[in-house]
Amino acid sequence: MCFSLQKPLNQKLRQELLTLLTPAFVHELCEELKKFFRHDRQHNRYLTYSQIRVLRGQLWNLKEALEADEPPAEWVKREPILASRRFRHTPPANGTFEDCFRRLPADYSHRVCC
Protein backbone atom coordinates (compact mmCIF):
# COMPACT_ATOMS: atom_id res chain seq x y z
CA MET A 1 0.00 0.00 0.00
CA CYS A 2 1.47 3.31 -1.09
CA PHE A 3 0.61 6.18 1.24
CA SER A 4 1.37 9.81 0.42
CA LEU A 5 1.07 12.52 3.04
CA GLN A 6 0.26 15.05 0.31
CA LYS A 7 -2.75 13.20 -1.09
CA PRO A 8 -6.18 13.07 0.59
CA LEU A 9 -7.15 9.76 2.17
CA ASN A 10 -8.99 7.10 0.27
CA GLN A 11 -12.65 8.20 0.32
CA LYS A 12 -13.91 4.90 1.74
CA LEU A 13 -11.42 5.06 4.65
CA ARG A 14 -12.26 8.73 5.19
CA GLN A 15 -15.99 7.95 5.43
CA GLU A 16 -15.39 5.03 7.81
CA LEU A 17 -13.32 7.25 10.10
CA LEU A 18 -15.94 10.01 10.02
CA THR A 19 -18.62 7.45 10.91
CA LEU A 20 -16.53 6.28 13.86
CA LEU A 21 -15.58 9.74 15.21
CA THR A 22 -18.76 10.60 17.06
CA PRO A 23 -19.04 12.31 20.44
CA ALA A 24 -20.34 9.04 21.93
CA PHE A 25 -17.28 7.14 20.65
CA VAL A 26 -14.90 9.80 21.96
CA HIS A 27 -16.63 9.74 25.35
CA GLU A 28 -16.42 5.93 25.61
CA LEU A 29 -12.76 5.92 24.56
CA CYS A 30 -11.91 8.53 27.21
CA GLU A 31 -13.82 6.63 29.90
CA GLU A 32 -11.91 3.44 29.08
CA LEU A 33 -8.60 5.32 29.21
CA LYS A 34 -9.49 6.77 32.63
CA LYS A 35 -10.18 3.24 33.93
CA PHE A 36 -6.89 2.05 32.50
CA PHE A 37 -4.87 4.86 34.14
CA ARG A 38 -6.44 4.23 37.55
CA HIS A 39 -4.32 1.06 37.77
CA ASP A 40 -1.12 3.13 37.75
CA ARG A 41 0.42 3.35 41.22
CA GLN A 42 1.51 6.93 40.62
CA HIS A 43 -1.87 7.88 39.18
CA ASN A 44 -2.24 11.65 38.94
CA ARG A 45 -5.89 12.45 38.29
CA TYR A 46 -5.14 16.03 37.19
CA LEU A 47 -2.59 14.83 34.62
CA THR A 48 -4.97 12.14 33.35
CA TYR A 49 -7.81 14.64 32.84
CA SER A 50 -5.44 17.09 31.15
CA GLN A 51 -4.29 14.40 28.73
CA ILE A 52 -7.90 13.39 28.06
CA ARG A 53 -8.68 17.01 27.07
CA VAL A 54 -5.71 16.92 24.69
CA LEU A 55 -6.90 13.62 23.18
CA ARG A 56 -10.44 14.98 22.67
CA GLY A 57 -8.95 18.04 20.97
CA GLN A 58 -6.83 15.89 18.67
CA LEU A 59 -9.83 13.78 17.71
CA TRP A 60 -11.89 16.92 17.09
CA ASN A 61 -9.12 18.28 14.83
CA LEU A 62 -8.93 14.93 13.03
CA LYS A 63 -12.68 14.94 12.45
CA GLU A 64 -12.58 18.48 11.04
CA ALA A 65 -9.61 17.64 8.81
CA LEU A 66 -11.43 14.58 7.46
CA GLU A 67 -14.57 16.63 6.82
CA ALA A 68 -12.46 19.19 4.93
CA ASP A 69 -10.85 16.32 2.96
CA GLU A 70 -7.38 17.56 3.90
CA PRO A 71 -4.33 15.43 3.18
CA PRO A 72 -2.47 14.12 6.26
CA ALA A 73 0.35 16.64 5.73
CA GLU A 74 -2.12 19.42 6.55
CA TRP A 75 -3.36 17.79 9.75
CA VAL A 76 -0.24 18.70 11.70
CA LYS A 77 -0.66 22.36 10.75
CA ARG A 78 -3.97 22.64 12.59
CA GLU A 79 -4.11 24.79 15.69
CA PRO A 80 -3.91 22.60 18.82
CA ILE A 81 -7.08 22.64 20.90
CA LEU A 82 -8.26 21.19 24.18
CA ALA A 83 -11.79 19.84 24.48
CA SER A 84 -13.65 19.49 27.74
CA ARG A 85 -17.07 17.97 28.29
CA ARG A 86 -20.20 20.12 28.20
CA PHE A 87 -22.21 17.44 30.01
CA ARG A 88 -21.89 16.29 33.59
CA HIS A 89 -23.74 13.05 34.17
CA THR A 90 -25.42 12.18 30.88
CA PRO A 91 -22.93 11.01 28.24
CA PRO A 92 -23.58 12.12 24.67
CA ALA A 93 -25.91 9.83 22.75
CA ASN A 94 -25.91 11.93 19.62
CA GLY A 95 -25.23 15.48 18.56
CA THR A 96 -22.24 17.33 17.25
CA PHE A 97 -18.87 17.87 18.85
CA GLU A 98 -19.92 21.48 19.52
CA ASP A 99 -23.00 20.23 21.40
CA CYS A 100 -21.07 17.76 23.56
CA PHE A 101 -17.64 19.34 24.05
CA ARG A 102 -16.24 22.80 24.68
CA ARG A 103 -13.32 23.91 22.53
CA LEU A 104 -10.52 25.62 24.47
CA PRO A 105 -7.30 27.09 23.12
CA ALA A 106 -4.21 25.10 24.00
CA ASP A 107 -2.44 27.89 25.87
CA TYR A 108 0.79 26.73 27.46
CA SER A 109 2.26 30.20 28.04
CA HIS A 110 1.85 29.91 31.82
CA ARG A 111 4.02 26.79 31.96
CA VAL A 112 7.72 27.10 32.65
CA CYS A 113 10.59 24.65 32.65
CA CYS A 114 12.62 24.32 35.81
Rank of each mutant, 00 (worst) to 15 (best):
G95D: 06
E70Y: 08
R103V: 10
D99L: 06
P80N: 03
R86C: 05
P72T: 05
E98D: 13
P92Y: 01
D69K: 15
E79Q: 13
W75N: 06
P72V: 04
R102E: 10
K63S: 09
R85L: 09
C100F: 02
E98K: 14
F97G: 02
T90W: 12
D99S: 02
W75A: 01
A73C: 14
P92R: 08
D99Q: 13
P80T: 05
T96A: 00
E79L: 09
R78P: 02
D69G: 08
T96D: 00
F97V: 01
R102Y: 05
E98W: 02
S84W: 01
R85V: 07
K63G: 07
K77R: 14
W75P: 04
P72Q: 01
F101D: 06
P91Y: 01
G95N: 09
V76E: 08
H89M: 13
E70M: 14
E98L: 10
P91L: 02
H89C: 10
P80A: 04
D69E: 14
R88E: 05
G95L: 07
E64F: 03
T90Y: 12
E70I: 12
R102V: 08
A93W: 11
E64M: 11
E98G: 07
E67F: 03
A83P: 07
E64A: 10
R85F: 00
V76N: 10
E70P: 09
E79V: 12
A68D: 12
L66K: 07
N94Q: 14
W75S: 00
A65T: 05
L66P: 03
S84T: 11
V76F: 09
R78C: 01
R86F: 00
L62I: 09
E64S: 12
E74G: 11
